[in-house]
Design a protein around this nucleic acid. Structure first.
Lengths: 329, 329
DNA sequence: CTGTTAGCGCCTTCAA
DNA sequence: TTGAAGGCGCTAACAG
């Protein structure tokens, strides 16, 4: 087989011009049916694959969309990706994924790659270390729209879809309150994550509404590593007034923290965020978890991107997906 | 900002020729330092991004490698991807990921995309439903090497890296044997997976070596869905002679099966494959798990691909990563 | 050190 | 219904 089958190869083999081949391959009705069939058959036999480079040069769209996520091992993100893919699939688009590993440099590289590859759009969940957005600014001038999902930038106008934890957090606090629990601690994520901000704010607000006392001692943040989570949990256990319940930033934090508690002989109820499938296997998981619907977030983001692609001059807007408390015990 | 900044834009703005710009951008030392700096600064200001389409046309390599995995929610694959990425990163390559969702059609689409995008190589873990390999055959004629990881094709000569479970399985059987356990069942994966084949063979062989009886009743296969796994497990529990231990295809199967056992009031020890981090959170996980080192498999696969890229006419070869039994109780 | 020129594979007017 | 010709943005001889 020839190393490089191009339309010229097919053209000369068939004794026709390459423009005819090009048109035949696109099913252009101006080309005779007979010719079209012969061309397409030959193309198949020769295993011809169009060179997207050349097509790109002619502004033929790639029908691909880039996805950048912080990591792939959190079910949260893989579910979000599935939501995106399912919508994209219906549009006949291919989803291409890169992970930033929560490293801004890698995120930049991924974005640059997508930019060079001229994807038609980008769906991004920011890396935890991203503190500037230059690499996204460029895309605008290339007409490549971005939709941020869940991990959205601060002070950077853009399309975005994010989870709102308010409802979930408040139902959670009420749930604990009804059980007679008053001393509720928050084991939060790092403050540079918007979602940690939001948890803190709604926690404080919810506590206030329930007229419950809060104390700085009951509010700790972990960098999400198992080590730090364990450390922070131990600090909570070292208080004179050990909390009666703990709200964890997400299921992973909850699991790590619960382990520490149980090893220390405590059986403190946990409430967490995520409601991920893995917690179904736990005998001692959180007693309730706030479902954030990552699949739906992905879907909404992809649908928003579809709208942006169809309606070129859409105004920036934000869509939200509300969370719901799921009681598991 | 101009919609499309090309080297010509920069050239005319600077009053030099576009080839000078091209060279300056590549840091070609033949271009004067002064000019180079001016060009690069202007490029930065204008947020110039090279058009990879045009570069592709000139056979400039993309420095990207495509990865196709069955799914992203299994930690096994995300760890494999991390192994790949870390090696690729050192080479200055970008990893691009698609998931096939265990669907051959999607797998084909992903491969076609990568082919058009002219990635320099492909790393593939086959979808469970892939039963023909035409879509991989093409790549050869385009000089795009493929390395199959873990889920490798049957009867299709290729580069491959796979996990060998023999050592792990045998240590596992011996471990159970030493505990006085004799009736050992196998809850295997679907037979179209090579890895299921391998587990079955080594199980039978190991049992024979230990002079233990085997029975078809003790060998069941699940399609890996929670439902089927639960069903198969219930069948095992319905036997007159309930097995004293069960070897599960992987950690997920084990977790699903263990749940069924415990709900039925049984406390049968499980041995499984994967040794995935999630099992660390389980109070009643498998008593031992065979570590398969997916990260290392990814690394080896990427290294093999690197060799193939450097040494164009390498012979097909297979590398293996041996498994190790990890006792957890 | 820099400019001129040709061409990568494809699509698309324009002509026939 | 088809062919000829030009050009997309870039790189790389080949000339200066």
């Amino acid at each position: 087989m020839a190393e490089n089958v191009t339309i010229k190869t097919i053209a000369s083999l068939l004794g026709i011009s390459h423009s005819t081949v090009s048109r035949a391959l696109q099913n252009n009705p101006r080309i005779g049916l007979r010719t079209r069939e012969r061309v397409q058959e030959m193309a198949k036999n020769l295993k011809y694959v169009s060179n997207s480079g050349a097509q790109l040069l002619k502004n033929v769209t790639t029908h691909s969309v880039g996805i950048v996520v912080p990591n792939l091992h959190e079910e949260y993100f893989s579910m979000m990706i599935s939501g995106i893919e399912d919508v994209l699939g219906q549009m006949g688009y291919q989803a291409i994924i890169c992970q930033s590993r929560d490293d801004m440099q890698r995120e930049k590289k991924a974005v640059e790659h997508f930019l060079r590859a001229r994807v038609e759009g980008l769906l991004v969940s920011l890396s935890a270390t991203t503190n500037q957005y230059d690499h996204f600014q460029n895309l605008g001038s290339y007409g490549i729209p971005i939709v941020f999902c869940d991990r959205t930038p601060k002070g950077f106008p853009s399309f975005r879809v994010r989870s709102v934890v308010e409802t979930g957090m408040k139902s959670g606090l009420e749930y604990l309150f009804q059980k007679g629990i008053r001393k509720i601690a928050l084991l939060n994520g790092p403050s540079y994550l918007l979602s940690a901000d939001e948890r803190l704010n709604t926690y404080l607000q919810g506590m206030l509404e329930l007229k419950l006392e809060t104390s700085p001692k009951y509010i700790r943040t972990t960098d999400l590593s198992k080590e730090d989570t364990s450390h922070q949990m131990r600090e909570l256990l070292a208080l004179e007034n050990i909390p009666e319940a703990i709200i964890a930033f997400n299921d992973y934090v909850a699991l790590d923290a619960i382990k520490v508690c149980r090893e220390a002989g405590y059986n403190i109820p946990f409430l967490s965020f995520g409601n991920l499938p893995i917690t179904n296997y736990m005998e001692h998981g959180p007693i309730a978890s706030v479902e954030q619907f990552p699949y739906e977030i992905g879907q909404k983001a992809a649908e928003l991107l579809r709208n942006v692609l169809n309606t070129k001059d859409l105004e920036y807007k934000e869509e939200v997906v509300h969370s719901v408390l799921k009681i598991r015990e």
